[in-house]
Write a protein that binds this DNA or RNA. Sequence first.
DNA 1: AGCTTCGCCTGCTTGC
DNA 2: TGCAAGCAGGCGAAGC
Length: 283
Amino acid sequence: MPELPEVETVVRELRVPLPGRTVARAILTAPDLYRRGSADISLLAGARIDAVDRRGKAIVVSLHPHRGRPNRLVVHLGMTGRLEWNDTRAKRAKPRHLHARILFTDGSELRYVDPRRFGYIFVGTPASVEESLRMGPDPFEIDSKMLAAQLSKRSASIKSLLLNQHIVSGLGNIYVDEALYRVRIHPLTPGMRVSVRAAEILEAARAVLRRAIDARGTTLRDYRRTDGTTGEFQVKLLVYGRDGGRCGRCGAEIRKMVVAQRGTHYCPRCQKRPRISASVSRK
DNA sequence: AGCTTCGCCTGCTTGC
DNA sequence: TGCAAGCAGGCGAAGC
């Protein structure tokens, strides 16, 4: 489940070899992975890559303007997607679930592999990409006052609000659980109840994201770096996937429940369930 | 409009 | 052992 740290890792890795390379041929064999309105990936042939960037959890490849063709490629890894970089000319075995290939003029290749096919690919102009990537700022871009303003008018659980990419982008299930554990807030707490703690929440999210980026991401099962190796942050998770284990702070048993349709991990002693109060339900 | 639920998709795990 | 059900979840669409 690639979230901000995993996508940032892939982007940093691709930033080394991709800029300056020219696309010879681009093929997508699973057309259902196109996001609606995408141009055909084959139109990228002949274009040279200028830059690789991240928007929330999406990877944005910018190509040099080329005969009026679309010059942006967006790849979203969904849950199980990965990009594999190979710059040797050696014969490569075709992995299962290979859906897209971008071959460069020097024989190198970028491959998109995605068993569960929740990811997507979008090819378009800068304007159409902007349109397709409508999302809020990521945790390093957003200001705590902006976050507080968003939370203060929402009654939904803080967990679902932090997962909502229109409010803040880049956070997914793992890092939301980790951040809420750090600030000792129960995942079911309504946003409006914790808007005064927005700065704290934001700082916790940034801290865990920074550490995860330093560790090159979290590999639970599918996530891989562009060279096929795993991230290292999974061993540093404090609550995610640790249900049944002990809280490192208080020793209570870490629990798992479903919030916002997601498996949600928390310490029942450190993260007190909010008490029902009339002020939340009343207008 | 905000909030919740559903469905997409595959592979591993669990239960009978 | 074999098969089916359950589960994982990012995110857009549908439903309330």
